[in-house]
Design a protein around this nucleic acid. Sequence first.
DNA 1: ATGAATCTGTTGAAAATTCAACAGAAAAGG
DNA 2: CCTTTTCTGTTGAATTTTCAACAGATTCAT
Lengths: 220, 220
Amino acid sequence: MKKYLEILKKCPLFFGIEEEQLLRMLHCLGARVSPFDKKYTVFAEGNPAKYIGIVLSGSVQIIQVDYYGNRSILSEMHESQVFAEAFACGEVESLPVTVVANEPSEVMFIECGHILHTCENNCGFHQQLIFNLMKDLAAKTISFHQRIEIVSKRSTREKLMTYLMFEAKKVGKSSFEIPFDRQELADYLEVDRSGLSAEISKLRSEGILESRKNHFELKR
Amino acid sequence: MKKYLEILKKCPLFFGIEEEQLLRMLHCLGARVSPFDKKYTVFAEGNPAKYIGIVLSGSVQIIQVDYYGNRSILSEMHESQVFAEAFACGEVESLPVTVVANEPSEVMFIECGHILHTCENNCGFHQQLIFNLMKDLAAKTISFHQRIEIVSKRSTREKLMTYLMFEAKKVGKSSFEIPFDRQELADYLEVDRSGLSAEISKLRSEGILESRKNHFELKR
DNA sequence: ATGAATCTGTTGAAAATTCAACAGAAAAGG
DNA sequence: CCTTTTCTGTTGAATTTTCAACAGATTCAT
């Protein structure tokens, strides 16, 4: 576990917990780590939602596929980010999403029950852990909220601009990279890929933005 | 406060807490109650998000208005339900939503900081309260997730059917009432009202559902 | 470096959504 | 009980999105 310490220290779930305590705690929580090749399934839809996942390296995508086969990307999680915690905490009987590795990745699993119910050793850090988990859930709710704000927009242009403006605000610059290729961006915005490309061209020709591949710059 | 006990006992935030302890706790938390007439603002967008709200009577809507004036209903909260907790817990500097009374209503406010940080009296119930709050956040995240699943659908028909199927599943019957009128449903699904009406008629003529006002019944 | 595979932008036709306007039904208010 | 207001369903035109197909770029693998 030691080699993951630097990443875990950045994980919001372990905020305010010292290194040595963290190691003991991981043992106590029964944390385990698995590697995944690109496109491999980390959690499959329908699985029981018992485990919280933490990305140790690489990245994973949370996706949903409806009965028409339309794929929708709910979010993408990177190093030190936590996923599936809402389903695990909410004790849902089966996951409504699929999680797949976006590149070769390592993921840590922690059984949520072990976090929620203080252990016999009475580590004393469960309180902090629970508190952190709550903060994390609040943040996640807010980010879902943002996602709803984006896909709620009626037109491709509005969805795209809303998304880009959030991204720009996030990094505090009008020039930034997005973590999606065109098809993924279209999936994320819930629009047609070709229509999205066309809209980007149009915005470019109107001087509203510049872009090359996944780099964007918002003008004025 | 006493007259609200029956409702508060049903509030998930106070699960597992006894009546008398609840009363003491409310005092300790500095809870206060305000009445609101229909359409009056409970929280305004841009306000600091310090308070958690609990609906004691009536109902409130969480809405968002974009710069084109399009109104979008994020959710509707009824008696004993908690709202704005994610923003309060997440300590966001300004609310991204507006909350308005949907009918004459009473709302209880609790400063979130008072929940998160144990008080000098050391009530001993803060732990339970924090735990409940976490469960609530998890549930909310899941319901947002459901909302995303609905508005992510590309067509009016799919959005409507996905929504109706969730509602049917929720009450465990194929016959149920929805809490929206047509315009509100259209806002919730993010579609055009007249197009929604047309789609409902079409589904009715295809024998897929029956409806009268806000009562729906899914056939086969 | 070369060929294969994937990604991106374009296009035009088909389909769906939005918009505006209206009339009948239902609800609210006096 | 009557009037006024709000709500709902319909329609057709305008707009937008989706779909399918393709060709030039780019990336990947050997």
